[in-house]
Structure formats: C-alpha cells, structure tokens
Amino acid sequence: MTTTKLTVVPDSKPVVPDSHVTIIRVDSTKHYPEYVCDYLRRGFGAFQIQRLYTLSTVLIEIQPSDVDKIVFPKVPPVKQQIEESRKLRAKESEMEELIKKHKKGYKNRLIIFIR
C-alpha cells in the first residue's frame, strides 16, 4: 500500500492524470492551493482522507464523490494562508535535512561500531 500523495499543479501546466488520480480544483481567490494541499497532507484533512480512501488496487484511491465529504474549516484570508503554508513547508524541509544528517551520522557510527 502506498501513502497518500498530494501535489499542486498550476493551471498553466498541462496534465493528463490516470484513473488513480482524483483532481480537486480550488478557487484561488479564496483558497491558496498549497494551503489546501497542506491541510489534506498534515491537518485534519489527512485523517478524513484515511477514513474515505478505498484500496481497489495497491494504490490509495479517493472517489470523486467522496471529495465532497471532506470537511474544510473556515480558512483565514489568502495572504495568511500563504504565510502559514510557507512556514509549514520550510519547517518540513528543515526537519527532512535533520533526518538525513542523523541517518548519515548513524550509518557512519554503525560502521565504526561493527569493525
């Protein structure tokens, strides 16, 4: 089983999704697409996706009719959504770097320990 993968694709970029992809379009005058994506990846939206997905193959699939069942909270103004999304993504990048450094250091120490 794979994990849920979410991404934002600009309207200007042509995309041909396969049958295992559910497209969610947002009104960018009211919602910053990355903020919505973050909510679905990390926020309460992630729990809702876990509740709604089906495993018709080894891929997680959310039926288009189930997208309407996802509850979105009242969101802040778009400017604040942008700030919050950028902060979250910066912290995630920072944590990923720390994890990489830790794994590399652990691997090196493990090799020394085994010798």
Score class of each variant (00 low, 15 high):
Asn108Cys: 04
Pro64Asp: 09
Val71Asn: 11
His102Thr: 12
Thr7Tyr: 06
Lys69Gln: 14
Thr7Asn: 04
Val9Asn: 15
Phe72Pro: 05
Ile60Thr: 14
Lys30Phe: 08
Leu59Gly: 03
Tyr32Met: 07
Asn108Asp: 04
Val67Leu: 00
Met1Ile: 07
Thr54Met: 12
Asp11Cys: 05
Leu40Lys: 05
Gly45Met: 09
Val36Glu: 01
Ser56Ala: 14
Asp38Thr: 08
Arg89Gly: 00
Pro73Trp: 05
Tyr39Met: 02
Phe72Gly: 00
Glu34Lys: 02
Glu84Val: 15
Arg115Gln: 11
Ser19Ile: 10
Pro10His: 05
Phe113Met: 09
Ile60Asp: 14
Gly43Arg: 00
Val21Thr: 10
Tyr32Pro: 10
Glu96Leu: 14
Val26Arg: 01
Leu59Tyr: 08
Ile114Trp: 10
Val26Trp: 12
Glu34Tyr: 09
Ile112Lys: 07
Ser56Ile: 13
Val58Cys: 13
Ser85Trp: 06
Thr4Ile: 15
Pro14Arg: 01
Tyr53His: 09
Ser85His: 15
Tyr106Lys: 14
Pro76Tyr: 01
Val58Pro: 09
Tyr106Pro: 02
Gln48Pro: 14
Ile82Gln: 04
Ile23Cys: 08
Pro77Lys: 09
Asn108Thr: 03
Glu96Ile: 13
Gln63Tyr: 04
Ile70Arg: 11
Pro73Leu: 00
Val58Glu: 15
Tyr106Gly: 06
Glu61Arg: 10
His20Trp: 14
Leu110Gly: 15
Tyr106Thr: 06
Pro77Gly: 09
Arg42Ile: 09
Thr22Pro: 04
Lys5Asn: 06
Thr3Leu: 06
Arg89Asn: 06
Arg51Pro: 06
Val26Tyr: 05
Pro64Thr: 04
Lys100His: 08
Ser19Gln: 15
Thr57Tyr: 00
Thr7Arg: 14
Arg41Phe: 00
Asp38Cys: 08
Val78Pro: 00
Cys37Glu: 11
